[in-house]
């Protein structure tokens, strides 16, 4: 359990939440936005983070949207992962989400909490990176929308007091051919090693990665090499590996060499399967 005399607020509008954040900040209370709260509660218990106040955004209706809007589909940041899985509007997201933590934990973990979290993996962001999604953020200057590529660089580059309200994806992406593969160190439920997600659009493959570097990413350079069909698959993969961002993780879950070995085989499997898909 978190220590200390932490304050709890549950605003019902976006503006109220942001205003509350700055009031608390002025009082030096170290406010934090809170949705599912699983990471805040576990890191707080381990004394890694020390919020003075938490602002629970789950009662804000925009953060619970799960609906079509014109050309887009909206996912509110406070939706639990299991809710998104049950509705299964976006099968790539469903499948990626089902590999996160466990079923009961996913009743509490929210999509916004996962993509904005502190852990390396944050796999739920991969489908949004692949589909050039749009991110709706609240802050001092009101609500703003950003293409994900402009605001996600290893982590979401939010300014102080900003929080994620929604993630939007164009409907054309919802049903594209995809594969997502999560490799674990051992067993079906062991700690994750790497996750690779891939979609095919206009005959080109897009790839996004988690667990390979200390952050999830999608890279144009890597994709260019993997799509160079003039070369044999092995060579394409070798060139792509040369273009990976650094550092590649090298920890107790898996050495750098082992991760790259697993990556090589995974990419090969995926390319063979995806190049056959229409």
């Amino acid at each position: 359990m978190l220590a200390g005399n932490i304050e709890y607020y549950q605003p019902s509008t976006v503006n109220e939440a942001v205003e509350q954040f700055f009031i608390l900040k002025k009082e030096n209370k170290l406010p934090m936005y809170y949705a599912g709260g699983t990471e805040i509660l576990t890191l707080g218990r381990l004394n890694i983070i020390h919020p003075g106040a938490i602002i629970d955004i789950k009662a804000i209706k925009e953060t619970l949207s799960h609906e079509s809007y014109q050309e887009h589909f909206i996912f509110g940041a406070s939706l639990p992962l299991t809710y998104i899985e049950e509705k299964n509007i976006f099968p790539l997201l469903t499948q990626t989400s089902m590999e996160i933590a466990d079923h009961t934990a996913r009743n509490k973990i929210t999509i916004g909490g996962n993509v904005c979290g502190n852990i390396f993996y944050r796999e739920a962001v991969l489908p949004f990176l692949l589909c050039d999604s749009t991110v709706v953020v609240a802050g001092k200057e009101g609500q703003k929308t950003h293409p994900i590529q402009d605001i996600f660089n290893k982590t979401f580059q939010f300014e102080e007091g900003q929080f994620l309200i929604q993630l939007l994806i164009e409907k054309k992406y919802l049903t594209l051919p995809f594969i997502t593969i999560k490799k674990r160190q051992q067993w079906e439920t062991g700690y994750p090693l790497i996750t690779v997600a891939c979609i095919k659009i206009e005959n080109q493959l897009r790839f996004a990665f988690s667990g390979l570097c200390p952050f999830p990413f999608r890279s144009q350079k890597v994709e260019t090499e993997l799509n160079n069909t003039l070369l044999p698959k092995e060579e394409r993969i070798n060139h792509a590996i040369e273009q990976l961002p650094t550092p590649v993780l090298n920890d107790v879950e898996g050495s750098k060499e082992y991760r790259l070995f697993v990556l090589r085989n995974t990419l090969k499997e995926m390319i063979v399967e995806m190049e056959e898909k229409e």
Partner: peptide, 13 residues
């Protein structure tokens, strides 16, 4: 009717 781990849920929630 949904199952939760009560160690990672605040009573106030």
């Amino acid at each position: 009717d949904n199952v939760y781990k009560s160690c990672i849920m605040l009573a106030i929630e």
